Amino acid sequence: MAELLRAEENMKIGQSKIKELWTFCGVNVIAYYSSSIFSNSGFSDQSALAASLGFGVINFLFAIPAMYTIDTFGRRNLLLITFPLMALFLLFTGFSFWIPPTTDARVSCIALGIYLFGVVYSPGEGPVPFTYSAEAYPLYMRTLGMSLATATTWFFNALLSITWPSLQRAFKPQGAFGWYAAWNIIGWILVLLFMPETKGKTLEELDQVFSVPTSVHAAYGLRQIPYFLKKYIFRQDIQPEQLYETEEQTPHDLGETKIV
């Protein structure tokens, strides 16, 4: 760690910290929904408050598995799996508003969609951004970087809270939920192309990870799509491509594996 700090001290000489921050930054958008959504779906005021409490309980309970999966399954994998599901459940919730309000199915489907959204949000997009932000910045500017990452997250939380009522009036619930579903798909694409995995890596390995050019990561992400189809859809016995050399591996161990 001491050697790493000395190396980074030499690296930052003559460089702009602001420029360095933007080199490592990503965008995380987290949406919160209030009891007004349940009220608009046909719940009574008391039932809407109870439903909102249920959503909070789900968020808490399903965030617990993340304490295990975030270091075993990986930060990137969690986002790649949960982003499409979040988009799907947001679309399901929005489309449920087309069900006639006189039927119980409307209320049930809207509540189900929001609860399922909470189930997949809690172990993925909920905890991952804060964990990832703490690892993405080099040590000499980690405090400044985390301050910026946290401020960015809460800025967009405030922006979403302020704009949701007008967005819902302009787009109707179907369009408003569809709007955020589309952003979840965009988030999935950005994670696939530009977000390297940091699970289980040492400080030295993290330096290696974030020194790889963005274009290399993007190409690697695109190659993972056919790998996934061959491995999990067509059940072919193929090994994943390794983009980095870990401390436990040597060039001889990696064989044909690509080392960047």
Rank of each mutant, 00 (worst) to 15 (best):
G187D: 11
L148Y: 07
I189V: 15
F155G: 07
F155I: 12
A182K: 00
K199E: 12
E197F: 08
I189H: 06
M195C: 11
G175N: 03
I162K: 09
M195W: 06
G178Q: 05
L144S: 11
I185W: 10
T153Y: 14
M146P: 00
N184W: 01
L193W: 12
L167S: 05
A176H: 05
L190G: 02
A149M: 03
F194C: 13
E197R: 06
P165D: 08
S161R: 00
F156R: 07
F155T: 15
S161E: 04
T153P: 05
A149R: 07
I189S: 07
L159V: 13
N157G: 00
L144W: 00
Q174F: 14
A151N: 10
Q168K: 10
Q174S: 05
A170K: 13
P173F: 08
I162N: 00
G145D: 07
L159W: 07
W188G: 01
L167K: 08
E197C: 15
A149F: 10
A181L: 08
Q168F: 11
I162M: 14
G200N: 14
G178E: 13
L159G: 08
S147N: 13
F156Y: 08
W179T: 03
I162C: 04
N157E: 04
K172I: 11
M195V: 08
G200Y: 12
Y180C: 09
Q174N: 02
T152P: 04
A182C: 07
G178C: 15
A170P: 08
R169S: 14
K172P: 00
